[in-house]
């Protein structure tokens, strides 16, 4: 049922847009082409930003600094390090955090406390750094003021809230 609904989402969205355009008697084909053309300009402006960020993030992840630090402090904290690791990678890299989540699921079942918490941290957060680079980079903004701190703080808040909410359920 859920599957059918989500499969219907995009086709019905397209249909609604087309039918409404038809009703308003606009030239559907020409407008589609006009809009699609704009993608060239956008892609050109985001590619250098994407390249720069992926380069830096991959070099950073290769060194595994976060893993190294966590290994050192592992014995002092009672909290599962996997969760901390995931929380720190989540805003930096979407594909890496999925890989970490996969490892967590292999070790703990997704329905356990850790499995659930990890799922919520993954699901309720975004790749903040990627969004920031892409959006600001594409319009050539150099000074982003408090945007980075604010969004990282919001991520931290989301992680803490996730912990409390999941604790209540278990």
């Amino acid at each position: 049922m859920m599957n059918l609904l989500s499969n219907l989402l995009i086709p019905s969205l397209v249909l609604i847009i087309i039918v409404y355009g038809l009703y308003k008697k606009i030239n559907l084909y020409d407008n589609f082409i006009e809009g699609a053309k704009e993608s060239f300009e956008i892609v050109l402006s985001i590619f250098p930003n994407l390249l720069a960020m992926i380069l830096a993030i991959n070099i950073f992840l290769n060194s595994d600094v976060i893993g190294l630090v966590l290994e050192k402090i592992k014995d002092y904290i009672k909290f599962p390090t996997e969760i901390i690791y995931l929380s720190m990678i989540r805003p930096i890299s979407g594909s890496s955090s999925i890989a970490i989540l996969n490892r967590i699921f292999e070790k703990f079942n997704p329905d356990t406390f850790i499995g659930t918490l990890a799922s919520v941290i993954q699901g309720a957060n975004d790749t903040t750094l990627y969004v920031l680079t892409l959006y600001f980079g594409s319009v050539g903004i150099k000074k982003i003021k408090y945007a980075l701190w604010l969004s990282l703080l919001t991520d931290l808040f989301a992680i803490i809230i996730s912990f409390f909410l999941v604790s209540i359920i278990f």
């Binding site: 397209v14 847009i17 087309i18 409404y20 355009g21 009703y23 308003k24 606009i26 559907l28 407008n31 589609f32 082409i33 006009e34 809009g35 699609a36 704009e38």
Partner: peptide, 9 residues
């Protein structure tokens, strides 16, 4: 492309 239609309409 699709959004352009939605925008113009």
């Amino acid at each position: 492309g699709i959004m352009k239609i939605a925008q113009v309409s």
